[in-house]
Design a protein around this nucleic acid. Structure first.
Lengths: 190, 190
DNA sequence: TAATTAATTAGATGAATATCGAATTAATTT
DNA sequence: AAATTAATTCGATATTCATCTAATTAATTA
């Protein structure tokens, strides 16, 4: 569900002392003093670690006299573990990432202000991005004679023959008897 | 199994950028450049993150041309998740921790060099530690008359009556008809 | 072969944080 | 009420590390 809560969880466990605390509390509840003696740390340090673990929902405290008895919240551990195993939860972490950023970068890197291409990319990966972009200039369901195709491609680069060949090779344009048309559903991603 | 490998795992995921990388690779393989563009980071930074993830066994690279295509190692994720869910794996994290350190600390805090007690602890938790220690001075299977019990207890503290009463109250010593004997299996932990 | 390009490595810098000692708070014992 | 005690909080310090730029390596294209 939550984005930063997962990060807090991993940050909480990304420390040798805190990991040991989790291991100890998995066996039995302990007070701050006991943990400090076993880990050979100052109580203030252990208190700090427990606060972090508590903020991540991994431990909870129960006051007993003037002791504070800490216990492990196994449910939290289980929740996260199950999330790591689920197929959908992982991609959700990157939900707010801009997936098209790379394509845009390639496009601006190779385009002049007027929209024409500086050069035709040599790398397959970049060429594909450019070709997908060019394909958007073709209407679906329309059949273009070669002369019109060249007119459109000339807006991008003088070497229309190469562009035409690559568009067909990439499966973005189809050709038959001197006529061309856009392949359905080839508007966007690779 | 391994101790520091688990720590490496959590450290690897304890960063917002790396967590996003995992989320992205969960959908599809990407090159360093693509990830850099999507995350708005320099390729060198992404490379550094991928190295960390790789060291933790979370991703692997496949050379393709002069691209490096990174993919997620879901098996590693599954292994750790299952370990988090298992009852035995968690306590194993603290296998090398000195569990008796607290008891030893209490013992030295309250003992004089000759082994006698400075005072009898007021806190239940500490009193129990001391009582367990004293109980070790009694042989199993042996019945002690009260006079002998007092002789042994006097080595620890003059207030033998209190010690005797507490030992019985804690269930470490049993009494019947003026004779005392050690309760089986009460030698050590609380 | 020379120029370009993806990726990694090295070095530098600033931010986060693990740990400690001291001060404070709250509960217990005398 | 005064003294003791467990725990937390605060301030300081040293370390770890995320990120950047620059340099280097390795592969591809011209």
């Amino acid at each position: 569900m939550d984005d930063s809560q997962l990060l807090d969880f991993f940050k909480a466990l990304a420390d040798a002392s805190r990991l040991k605390i989790i291991g100890l509390l998995a066996q039995e509840s302990f007070t701050v003093e006991q943990l400090a003696a076993m880990l050979k740390l100052r109580p203030s340090t252990v208190s700090h670690h427990l606060a972090r673990l508590s903020k991540a929902g991994l431990v909870s405290a129960r006051a007993e006299g003037y002791y504070n008895l800490y216990r492990l919240e196994t449910s939290k551990l289980e929740t996260i573990a199950r999330r790591m195993l689920s197929r959908e939860a992982l991609p959700a972490i990157a939900a707010d990432v801009d997936l098209e950023a790379y394509d845009r970068k390639v496009l601006t890197d190779f385009s002049n202000p007027d929209g024409s291409l500086k050069t035709i990319p040599a790398q397959r990966k970049k060429l594909t991005v450019i070709l997908c972009h060019i394909a958007k200039s073709f209407e679906p369901e329309v059949r273009y004679p070669e002369k019109e195709v060249n007119q459109i491609l000339a807006r991008f680069h003088q070497d229309t023959a190469t562009l035409r060949r690559e568009l067909v090779g990439a499966g973005l344009l189809e050709r038959q008897r001197g006529e061309y048309w856009k392949v359905q559903g080839s508007g966007n991603r690779v």
